[in-house]
């Protein structure tokens, strides 16, 4: 008789999973805004080709942490970052790092779509041009088309590339901004509540896009929508008043989180 032990059944149900490579890593990251400390020693690994969602109530430090990953905090007066942030084991706060190049490798999409007040074409072409990524008009055309295609907006704008980007709908503008981030061939894309200004249909399109982009990019997303975090991410990190409370596979975080604060937050029991 063929006896199936519990272990062998488990094995059949979950085939060996390859441990993903760690793309970015935060090591005891602290952030001060002037006197006020906003992050307290956050250790977090961002696995490659996965979507990592950062959740937590307002003021918990999730956006602050996100902005440490491509040094967006440098632009804020009185902001000091401690600890270590690495991209492929390279310290991104090393003085030798070219911040402009870093931000090309670690792109960002913001809460409110912010297309340049230029043509759709120019919105995409701007980045590759200043980074000198293309040599000819034909090559630029190709980058523009490819980026718009990857952001799932090509079919909607291909006939009006010379029209202004600000004339698009909110959802289209956000996908245009994602296309703009993709155009400089980033490795990591940071998204700070990318859907909070979008309607449900546009949100669904962006979520579908996030899932596709994961094949080629590593994505970190800050979101206030628990359902969105559950839908789009593979890993979830929960922040609370400047601390990383809990981090783990999204499936587990939303069905059986370990920490009481995570439970309270995701079930709607926070004051």
């Amino acid at each position: 008789m063929n006896m199936l032990t519990e272990a062998s059944i488990e094995q059949k149900l979950s085939p060996m999973k390859n441990e993903p490579r760690i793309k970015m890593r935060g090591d005891k990251v602290t952030v001060h805004y002037g006197e006020k400390q906003a992050l307290f020693g956050v250790d977090l690994q961002i696995p490659e080709h996965q979507v990592t969602a950062l959740i937590g109530p307002s003021g918990c430090g999730k956006s602050t942490f996100l902005r440490c990953l491509n040094r967006m905090n440098d632009t804020i007066d009185g902001c000091r970052v401690g600890g270590k942030v690495t991209l492929d084991q390279e310290d991104v706060y090393d003085p030798k790092i070219d911040v402009v190049e870093l931000r090309a490798r670690v792109g960002m999409v913001f809460q409110k779509p912010n297309p340049f007040p230029k043509s759709i074409y120019e919105n995409i072409a701007y980045g590759p041009r200043i980074h000198g990524l293309t040599k000819s008009k034909a090559e630029m055309d190709e980058v523009v088309e490819k980026s718009l295609r990857k952001a799932a907006i090509w079919d909607e704008v291909k006939d009006r590339l010379s029209e202004s980007g600000t004339g698009l709908s909110g959802g289209q503008q956000q996908r245009l901004c994602i296309a703009r981030a993709i155009a400089v061939s980033p490795e990591v894309i940071l998204m700070d509540e990318p859907c909070s200004a979008l309607d449900p249909i546009a949100t669904a399109k962006v979520e579908e896009l996030i899932d596709e982009l994961r094949q080629n990019y590593t994505i970190v997303i800050v979101t206030h929508s628990m359902q969105q975090a559950a839908r789009v991410s593979q890993r979830t990190a929960m922040f609370h008043i400047g601390y990383l409370v809990e981090e783990g596979p999204t499936d587990k975080m939303f069905t059986n989180p370990d920490d009481k604060r995570t439970q309270d937050y995701i079930t709607g029991r926070f004051g």
Binding site: M226, Q227, T255, N256, G268
Partner: peptide, 10 residues
């Protein structure tokens, strides 16, 4: 109506 999570979902 609520999209319950964690112990509520369970």
């Amino acid at each position: 109506r609520r999209q319950p999570m964690a112990q509520d979902l369970r």
